[in-house]
Write a protein that binds this DNA or RNA. Structure first.
Length: 590
DNA sequence: TTAGGGTTAG
């Protein structure tokens, strides 16, 4: 480009604007300096595009230098440039400068007001945003959407929904609405529900959107797929994939990534690979999702193959890639490969290991029984170990029965944030594994005294598009009587096949139930029982659990898969377990 | 002395 004989200012301006949209970011910088060499000054339109691009790339210093340029060229009071700069400062995190831009505006229009509302929402200044919104002389759809987003980000879904209901733009069911119209408002609300983990409401809002004849878009599908991924709702996810095909929506890298993530998190790794292979354009997110998906589904070697392929295609791995790769190595027991990638990530790929990468390595070494090496890494890591790191080490101590080391780890966990419920769970499980019930009780009492709550065990299973949730010990499910009878029958069969309850892990989930009964009532077991009794023979059962599966349920589920001739797929907090013919894909290594 | 350039959902 540099040698092109361009000297007509408008051509330079167009070339710069084109490169901002299509070319990689450095291309623009080269082109821009070429323009200055030709003594051509950017037009205000070019400057506006540049500012927008700086905002999108988070290029704070470059953007500021263009602010000076705008000032020098006398465009200081151009309302569009001012709005662009206000948005830029908001997006690079400089709220003070954003406020200053807004204050300096002599005339404001609805777009400028919206930009300020959006900046204030992103910086958590809700009341200020709302005040500005209430006093705006004009509002458009974007104004309402910015406020809805603001409340969703705060987790105030009630206020978000009130805004959604009050939004007059949404209620207009017109020809326009049938074509594309107000889908952004609906998408905002759906994604808000997903962010606030109200997945059922997200799906219900989608149904309502269809009834109102507002056309769902690719963005709608991305939010819904994210909901399915969280819930492990494969049937719903497959329905959405089918809907995307029927409506001929465009599967680009972003929607493709949402599909890969949904299939991976629903345990259907073959379908995830299929979507991945068919994608014409893949970005780093797609590669990261498939590598992580293969890893959590127990295909560590395949994750490594994909990583090699990613490099061959000329992509640069980032921190997320290595989390997927290292945890994949950990789940498949690939110690030497994990060690190699950990040392190469900085030296060869220029990615500095963060705490989550150290966490993966400590997990990998600890599970493999290399406790000394794991401890050494904890000591030498450049940051303060967090509860996840100590938790991994404690889990390794449990597996390899190293009580001495456990004491040290427990002390460190205690010294960490005393308000973090997760630390108490680690401790309680640790004492329970040693049958030291007095300490378990002390631990529980301290939790109650300090008002710390442990997340209760909860498992879900999707049947005919409905997600059924089960909480250990106190389910409100309509068919709980029948389920309990069936659980008793399962318990009998387990006994016949030599399964003995491991009382040590009872307290993993609940505290009040009588211990023997309690284990067989762990939430994943209730969900599996419900799945067995409600689906035809041979149908695969898929369960999602919010915590890790305990070893007692793990061995019980292996037997159940054999006795009832069913494939059972359980997604726990860490990984997938594919139970089939009495075995689990994790090879009892998790 | 054209128009174009700015805000909201993933």
């Amino acid at each position: 480009m540099r040698n092109l004989p361009i000297c007509i200012p408008s051509l330079w301006n167009s070339a710069v604007r084109l490169s901002l949209d299509s070319g990689p970011w450095p291309d623009f910088v080269g082109l821009y300096s070429g323009m200055l060499r030709d003594s051509v000054l950017p037009s205000k339109v070019t400057l506006s595009s540049i500012v927008r691009s700086c905002a999108a790339h988070g290029a704070a210093q470059l953007g500021e230098s263009f602010h000076c340029q705008i000032f020098k060229m006398g465009f200081r009071l151009d309302v569009i440039l001012q709005t662009g700069l206000l948005d830029f400062y908001g997006k690079v995190g400089d709220l003070r400068c954003a406020r200053k831009m807004f204050a300096e505006m002599l005339q404001r229009d609805v777009v400028a007001d919206n930009a300020m509302v959006s900046v204030l929402s992103k910086h958590g200044c809700v009341e200020e945003a709302r005040d500005l919104f209430d006093n705006m002389p004009q509002r458009n759809s974007a104004s309402w959407n910015s406020m809805i987003t603001c409340y969703c980000k705060l987790g105030d879904i009630g206020s978000a929904h009130s805004m959604f209901d009050a939004n007059p733009v949404k209620d207009v069911v017109s020809w326009n609405a049938m074509i594309d119209g107000n889908s952004v408002t609906w998408n905002t609300m759906i994604s808000g529900y997903v962010q606030c983990k109200e997945f059922g409401k997200a799906i219900a809002t989608f149904q309502e959107m269809r009834l109102e004849n507002v056309k769902p878009t690719e963005v709608t599908m991305i939010s819904l797929l994210s909901a399915c991924a969280h819930l492990g709702a494969l049937d719903m996810g497959e329905w959405i994939h089918d809907y995307i095909r029927r409506k001929r929506l465009k599967i680009d890298a972003v929607l493709g990534n949402a599909l890969i993530d949904m299939y991976s998190k629903c345990g259907s790794i073959e379908a995830a690979c299929d979507v991945f292979n068919r994608l014409p354009v893949k970005n780093i997110f797609c590669w990261n999702s498939i590598i992580a998906g293969l890893g959590t589904n127990g295909y560590g070697e395949k994750a490594i193959d994909l990583f090699a392929l990613m490099l061959e295609e000329g992509l640069k791995p980032d921190g997320v890639t290595f989390v997927g790769l290292l945890s994949g190595c950990s789940h498949s027991g690939l110690v030497s490969a994990g060690r190699r990638y950990f040392s190469e990530m900085h030296d060869i790929y220029g990615v500095t290991p963060a705490i989550e990468h150290y966490g993966c390595m400590i997990d990998l070494l600890g599970r493999a029984g290399l406790l000394k090496e794991a401890v050494e890494l904890v000591k030498t890591m450049p940051m303060k170990p967090n509860a996840q790191v100590w938790g991994s080490l404690l889990r390794a101590c449990q597996i390899h029965k190293d009580t001495e080391l456990s004491k040290h780890v427990v002390q460190n966990l205690l010294d960490l944030d005393p308000r973090d419920g997760g630390n108490y769970v680690y401790l309680s499980n640790f004492y329970a594994s040693l049958s030291r019930w007095d300490e378990v009780n002390v631990c529980r009492k301290v939790m109650i005294d300090r008002g710390v709550h442990k997340e209760p065990g909860c498992s879900s299973i999707e049947l005919d598009g409905i997600v059924h949730e089960f909480v250990a010990g106190h389910s409100r499910h309509l068919q709980i009587m029948q389920i309990n009878l069936f659980l008793d029958e399962i318990a009998k069969k387990l006994k016949e096949h030599g399964h003995e309850s491991n009382r040590a892990l009872v307290l993993h989930d609940i505290e009040d139930e009588e211990k023997e009964t309690a284990v067989s009532y762990h939430s994943e077991r209730i969900a599996v029982a419900f799945g067995l009794m409600s689906t035809p023979p041979g149908k695969t059962i898929r369960v999602v659990k919010n915590l890790r599966t305990c070893s007692d349920c793990h061995s019980a589920l292996k037997i159940i898969s054999n006795v009832y001739k069913r494939e059972i797929i359980v997604r726990d907090r860490k990984r997938f377990h594919h139970f089939k013919d009495g075995c689990c894909s994790c090879r009892d290594y998790w």
